[in-house]
Design a protein around this nucleic acid. Structure first.
Length: 440
RNA sequence: CGGGGUAUAGCGCAGUCUGGUAGCGCGGAAGUUUUGGGAACUUCAGGUCGCAGGUUCGAAUCCUGCUGCCCCGACCA
């Protein structure tokens, strides 16, 4: 993409309303624009990031055998009345009525709807287990939205739902999702740790929150450093094997957020040298809830013995739009964002330091064409800005690599390749720079 | 929802106390000189001063009501 034809407007000054670093950088780098409290438009550069995050989530869901569908944002109030949640939910639910005075709501979640859909088609134990998911915008009318997309009112979520015949089977589904989550966050360059979460009135111990570590995170985190060194399963992970031992590895270490932290237990279970106290951001939760929805909604499964029983359900959320902010919290410096390559809006930026000069222009064009041909996503700064402005802008938007083409290095037959994360630069011939980015 | 702020050009702000017909910086446009870490100068464009009433010869400024937005707390993916 040529920057001169793109739609990108960066801000030099910091918008006043933004308190935390990710919010400031997202506004400054032209990723988002606030349209109302907690409601944002995703500008082209930000939208690309959102798409990258979405795609990683999608790939990992597909890998565990989850099946994607798409449910609407608007739901009928009557559906929620079946579980009593319409009245229980409170003012966080955005209630709407249509021209016929029919009561609707903008969905804050979809358990009722997926249960209704599932039970309309599936009756037999032979059809289980099933995992379904969708990636959709949701709305919660937060009293006080803040932190940009980290806590908006409208937000993009991946919600997965599991359907099983009994608790033992449900646990298998839960474990699959647990492992998929480890992979999702690792692929985004994040250190994520599962933390045992409150399960509310349902009971049981099958709920974990996934916290990514970021020093500017919103909640305190206490954990055993051992959990940070655990290897995340690779893409060849066999999800059909027994995952209990693996889950055990990840859940045996002490890990807690500030609100549930037990200092005495922490000291008892963790050696002093391995105690870590840092901060983090919740980006996902996995949850087994049994018959919470299937029972009141009479979503019954016929078992082998002829009996009919509600299915055992679980739900698994990932805050997709929140992740965009969370990744920045975890990866930035004083000059701007440092995108992990997997979610970067473009892999590289090319800067022509002397726009109008035939020599630098031609080399830039060649590099641009070659990278495009090789399928490398690249943003070519072909504008007439001065070098300093181009450097500052590229650093701010945080593309992993910068190819800097200026008369100085060109006189020696080289261009400069800069790695955003480390600041490392080296001069090398254009062909070598292309080869480096295009992979062998 | 309690407490505290704030609203003036795309962004950051001054002007409000003491009423007199709107200003600065960034950003945008044009030109000249520049050109390896957010250039300098000149010129230009851009505002129903959040909205609605009221007081006044005259309101960004004073009064009343409303709304948006932000911060702290409680709450949350």
């Amino acid at each position: 993409m040529r920057l001169s034809r793109y739609f990108l407007s960066i801000l030099r000054e910091v918008p006043k309303e933004a308190e935390i670093v990710s919010h400031r950088l997202m506004l400054r780098a032209g990723l988002i624009r606030q349209e109302a409290a907690g409601i944002y438009a995703w500008l082209p550069l930000g939208f690309r990031v959102l798409q990258k995050i979405t795609q990683i989530v999608r790939e990992e869901m597909d890998r565990v055998g989850a099946v994607e569908l798409l449910m609407p944002t608007l739901q009928l109030a009557d559906l929620w009345r079946q579980t009593g949640r319409y009245d229980a939910y409170g003012p966080e639910m955005l209630r709407i009525s249509d021209r016929h005075k029919r009561e609707l709501l903008y969905g804050p979640t979809n358990e009722e709807m997926i249960t209704e859909i599932f039970s309309a088609y599936v009756r037999s134990y032979k059809d289980l287990p099933k995992l379904l998911y969708h990636i959709q915008w949701k709305f919660r009318d937060e009293l006080r939205p803040r932190f940009g997309v980290m806590r908006g009112r409208e937000f993009l979520m991946k919600d997965a739902y599991s359907f099983d015949v009994d608790e033992a089977a449900a646990r298998i589904s839960y474990n699959k999702m647990f492992v998929a989550y480890l992979r999702i966050f690792a692929r985004m360059g994040l250190k994520a740790i599962p933390v045992r979460a409150e399960t509310g009135p349902i009971g049981g111990n099958l709920s974990h929150e996934f916290i990514i570590l970021a020093e500017t995170g919103e909640s305190a985190v206490y954990c055993d450093s051992g959990i940070l060194d655990l290897p995340v399963p690779g893409p060849d992970m066999d999800y059909e094997h027994d995952l209990e031992p693996l889950i055990g590895d990840w859940t045996n270490f002490y890990a807690a957020t500030g609100d549930v932290h037990d200092a005495a237990r922490f000291e008892r279970e963790t050696q002093a040298s391995k105690r870590i106290h840092t901060r983090g951001i919740e980006v996902g939760q996995v949850f087994y809830f049994g018959e919470k929805y299937s029972k009141p909604m009479r979503a019954l499964i016929t078992h082998a013995d002829g009996s009919e029983r509600p299915f055992q359900g679980g739900s698994y959320g990932v805050g997709v739009s929140r992740l965009a902010g969370a990744i920045i919290e975890a990866s930035h410096d004083e000059n701007g964002i440092i995108w992990p390559e997997s979610v970067a809006p473009f892999k590289a930026g090319i800067a022509d330091l002397k726009p109008g000069d035939p020599a630098t222009g031609q080399v830039c064009e060649e590099i641009y064409a070659s990278l495009q041909k090789a399928g490398v996503e690249v943003l070519y700064d072909d504008t007439g800005e001065r070098p300093g402005a181009k450097f500052a802008r590229l650093d701010l938007i945080g593309l992993p690599y910068q190819i800097i083409v200026g008369p100085k290095s060109l006189a020696e037959g080289t261009v400069e390749l800069k790695v955003r994360a480390t600041g490392a630069r080296k001069n090398l011939p254009a062909a070598a720079a292309i080869g480096h980015l295009a992979g062998r």
